[in-house]
């Protein structure tokens, strides 16, 4: 069982985000870390390969500036190798362009399944996994909250508006997993040391033989949303609930 996992490296979400005034896109030039939502895909891949009795987990990632620290984290968790497509041409690339790049990168190594997070924590586009599936001509199951493999079939519990569906899908397939689907492991010291010597293959757009990279949408303007004014704040001294009741009375809810 060989699994490719899409990993995005993003600015630390704990740090305040900012917009580049010129390109009006999210600044991504600082230090990048592995997106938390992708750690679930990495963990899931490691567990599935383990259960299947062995195989390789290949990370695929795209970054405009050659950043690898997020990939090292995933390698330290136990992934076999990483393929990083890094090219200044990819600055401001949209989800479809990213999907084309990653689909090419995925095809460099044999795979039975592609795993990805449902959406990144910085861009939230949420279409990439299924775009990759369509590009590769594969079936897909998005929003998986439970995944198991039996032979050449993957079984998934897929979220729905009302609950969830049991879905079966022939392999190879693309599966996107939700946060919380598994508990991502912390890299061990041994893992961190081993990750230093694991291969990260760095490629340019030209290496992938992709025809064209076009920026197809642009941000016209960024403005402040209508600000919501904060109201009154009280320290609870045992009578906090009374303030709430009074507020509910005002709203005629009690």
């Amino acid at each position: 069982m060989n699994i490719a996992v899409c990993v995005k490296q993003i600015p630390d979400p704990a740090a305040p985000g900012s917009i580049d005034p010129e390109s009006k896109t999210l600044r991504r030039d600082g230090k990048l870390i592995m997106d938390d939502s992708d750690s679930f895909g990495v963990e899931m891949a490691l567990q599935l390969v383990d259960k299947a009795g062995g195989g390789e987990v290949t990370l695929v990632s795209m970054a405009p500036n050659g950043e690898t620290s997020g990939l090292r984290t995933a390698l330290a968790m136990g992934a076999t190798r990483a393929v990083l497509v890094s090219d200044p041409k990819l600055h401001g690339a949209d989800a479809l362009t990213t999907a084309k790049v990653l689909a090419k990168a995925i095809q460099r190594y044999p795979f039975d399944m592609v795993l990805a997070g449902t959406e990144s924590s910085d861009g939230y586009t949420g279409t990439l996994p299924v775009q990759i599936a369509e590009l590769l001509g594969l079936p897909s199951v998005s929003f998986a909250k439970k995944v198991s493999i039996d032979g050449a079939v993957v079984s998934v519990e897929r979220q729905t508006e009302a609950g969830y569906d049991d879905v079966t899908c022939p392999l190879p397939a693309v599966v996107s997993v939700t946060a919380g689907v598994v508990e991502p492991r912390y890299p061990s010291f041994k893992g961190i040391m081993a990750a230093k010597s694991k291969p990260i293959e760095t490629l340019s757009v030209a290496d992938l033989e992709l025809d064209s990279i076009a920026v197809a949408e642009e941000v016209q303007a960024v403005h402040d949303a209508q600000a919501r004014q904060g109201g009154e704040i009280f320290e609870d001294d045992g009578s906090g609930f009374e303030k709430v009741v009074a507020f509910l009375e005002q709203l005629k809810l009690v």
Partner: peptide, 13 residues
Amino acid sequence: ARLSVKWDLPVLT
């Protein structure tokens, strides 16, 4: 997502 690939057009979500 599937339509975007079929038509080779970007999405805004």
